[in-house]
Design a binder for these strands. Structure first.
Lengths: 233, 233
DNA sequence: CGACCATTTGATATGGATCAAGCGATGTGG
DNA sequence: CCACATCGCTTGATCCATATCAAATGGTCG
């Protein structure tokens, strides 16, 4: 059901160092002033695939910017099931909290470079710089919007959930009609509130109706966006 | 399935007037500085039961504070189903948006008094008053937290959803173990992503196990919170 | 090559939806 | 003030989408 027991490496301060020249998938940090500031203020860290970045109930003293790779946030429910709260790709900011502690855990989906900024430093900067404050507020608003969409996703049929997910990923990665999924079927299932079997079968179903192609399990080609959107609700 | 077609009264400016002496269930506005400011800045309006306060896709030019009564926000999905986003009781603020338009509709569940504040006025005030800005930010954080909890709710079993809902309502209304529900079974069902039949049967089930009592359909007595919490996940 | 792990595929079980009545409270017109 | 219509809720019978259990397949890495 749940995948491998989470490795839990201590945060490795030896990997704190200035960013090296950007590898291919690094985020263009000139785009977003908040991400830009975080780059300047923060420390770059590397997290190997499946390693924990922070844990639920740990103090939320840092905010994180994905430079490369991708990240999932999740929560383990009392019955052992895992609910994935969201996926964060290069350029995305995660770990934003309003309470003292994190309400989710975060793990690297693939080897990830992340810039880590002290939350207190960020709020202090927001106090001095109104543009940053606005940006931070807007970011929170986007996170809220995304979470509201997640709620809507979870009341739809399996087909609708998978179709919505694919369209969302296509928008976020914007590589034409080819979506490279960084996450496993289990991650997708736990995000959509389905089982891996249902995700797999649903993808197969969409392939059968020629809405998508699945050349490899991590690569999906959208063949008929209109059909997917029609399912989208 | 969906209840009566929404009445759609124009906003009645004749009800714009200073607050009269608080009726019994009015919110104690001294508690929250943001609510306090909204009281001062805003106009009081009354909305009859089931009337629309704002509609999805309308410009989000106002923010709302519930003075008395209660409010639901919701969205109609393409297949006609309704998803309730949340319930807002006296003292709660709703209608907060970060885009130009509302992403949900809002209706009065029972006759409701609401204070309406221009969004631009509120953001202007936040620009001048750091305490208000903080409060607004914190409010957004709470809304985000509540929405994240809603996500977690929707992946649980019917029993767990209903139990969680009852516990949440008990916390929010804090009338000991007696919960007076302002909303219909249909409202609850659409919030929990279930049908009214399932909500009804699940309440009956909880009653059978002596976790709750249901003296009238709108009144629930929590007899065994521990049992409910155990279901809560 | 062989082991391991993710994914797919198949067979069956089940929780909640759907369809269909029944029931009780509330309000309305005669 | 009663008979009756209405509406929200409950209860019952059946169906179906997705979960669960089980096994086969395929890709990756030592």
């Amino acid at each position: 059901m749940l995948q491998q027991p989470a490795v839990r490496p201590a945060i490795r301060t030896d990997s704190l160092r200035p960013m090296s020249p950007a590898p291919r998938s690094d985020f263009d940090r000139s785009a977003n002033p908040l991400a830009q500031s975080m780059q300047l203020m923060g420390a770059a860290m590397s997290f190997p695939r499946n390693s924990e970045i922070f844990g639920e109930n740990e103090p939320a003293d840092y905010v994180y910017l994905v430079v490369s790779g991708s990240v999932r946030t999740y929560k383990i429910l009392s019955d052992g099931r895992r609910q994935v709260g969201g996926f964060y790709l290069a350029g995305d900011i995660f770990g934003l909290e309003f309470a003292d502690d994190h309400s989710f855990s975060a793990e690297a989906i693939s080897d990830a470079k992340v810039v880590v900024v002290k939350r207190s430093a960020l709020t202090a900067l927001a106090g001095r710089d109104a543009a940053i404050a606005r940006e931070l507020f807007a970011l929170t608003g986007r996170e809220l919007g995304r979470t509201r969409d997640h709620v809507l996703l979870l009341v739809k049929s399996a087909q609708e959930r998978v179709a919505s997910f694919l369209l969302e990923m296509a928008t976020r990665t914007s590589t034409g009609n080819v979506v490279e999924l960084p996450m496993s079927r289990q991650d997708i299932a736990d995000y959509l509130g389905l089982t891996i079997e249902t995700v797999s079968r649903t993808l197969r179903g969409l392939e059968t109706t020629a809405a998508i192609e699945v050349p490899t399990s991590r690569r999906i080609v959208l063949r008929n966006r209109a059909a997917l959107s029609r399912l989208n609700s």
